[in-house]
């Protein structure tokens, strides 16, 4: 078990996301029923299988499982079938939208943003987690597991920029620090920072590039949140920033990220500029 969790950071991620989904369903009443969740997971796996066949790659269930669990945690819809549609969009985007041999958008992120923009039938409940210290503890614990192996620097950079911006805003407004602290405890934010933004496959290849990327996401999110009062600012900011990743990679070229063991199983893609 220990080896399983250590071997690939995605295993720990799947474990944590599953735990959160179960906790959410049992204790927090998220309003997603088990059958819908199952449909989302199965659709994601099926889409991955089709996409892998199409691209001539070996089927790996881990990435679609993470996308599906993230959707189960975040997406709320007024019809059950929107969940599976989101799963197709999420996993399908990986195969359909690629540049320089890597996918552009975090699958969950782009599926959520697409449905939010194109339909008026889905929503995200950023407040659904409450101000949970328990959740924060779970995510920090998970992050300690995942970060050293994946691209944790972007999470730290993002939390630093975003937290710094919130604290600076509070100081400027003369607000008590309980306000930025309350904003930083938001479960949706922690989930975003812990898992969505740190998806190594869609990040710039160098550390400098990733820090720049984190700053870009934080700046855009700040503008959307505080100039336009957009509650889902983080999701939009991440999707918009992802468009700039190829440019960041060209300016700051580095070695392409691969999940452990993928070089033998999957196809090796040369990094840009080499």
């Amino acid at each position: 078990m220990r080896d399983l969790l250590r071997g690939d950071p995605r295993h720990a991620q799947i474990a944590v996301l599953s735990g959160l989904a179960i906790w959410g369903a049992l204790a927090l009443d998220f309003g997603t029923d088990t059958l819908t969740a199952l449909a989302v997971v199965l659709t994601a796996l099926a889409t991955e299988w089709v996409g892998s066949r199409f691209r001539g790659r070996r089927f790996d269930p881990r990435s679609p499982l993470i996308s599906a669990l993230s959707l189960v945690l975040l997406l709320r819809a007024d019809a059950w079938w929107l969940g599976p549609v989101a799963a197709v969009l999420a996993v399908g985007s990986k195969f359909a939208i690629q540049r320089d041999g890597k996918h552009v958008f975090n699958p969950t992120n782009i599926a959520l943003v697409a449905l939010l923009l194109l339909t008026d039938r889905v929503w995200i409940s950023p407040g659904q987690w409450g101000g949970g210290a328990l959740l924060a503890a779970a995510l920090v614990g998970a992050a300690c597991w995942v970060l050293p192996r994946a691209r944790g620097d972007v999470t730290l950079a993002f939390i630093t920029f975003w937290g710094g911006a919130l604290v600076a805003r509070a100081v400027w407004l003369g607000d008590p620090l309980t306000i930025p602290m309350h904003q930083l405890q938001n479960g949706g934010l922690l989930l975003f920072a812990g898992f969505m933004i740190s998806d190594p496959k869609t990040l710039p290849d160098t550390r400098a590039g990733r820090i720049l990327f984190a700053a870009l996401v934080a700046a855009l999110a700040y503008w959307l949140r505080f100039a336009h009062y957009e509650p889902d600012a983080l999701l939009y900011a991440l999707a918009a920033s992802a468009v700039f990743v190829p440019a960041i990679d060209r300016a700051l070229p580095g070695r392409r990220f691969q999940w452990p063991g993928v070089t033998t199983a999957g196809q090796q893609v040369p990094a840009p500029g080499r």
Binding site: L28, D29, D78, D120, S125, P126, G127, Q128, W129, G130, G131, H182, Q183, N186, P231
Partner: peptide
């Protein structure tokens, strides 16, 4: 549109 909820606090039934 539909039900309203708080985004910075948890809305519970």
């Amino acid at each position: 549109q539909g039900r309203v909820e708080t985004t910075n606090y948890r809305t519970t039934k």
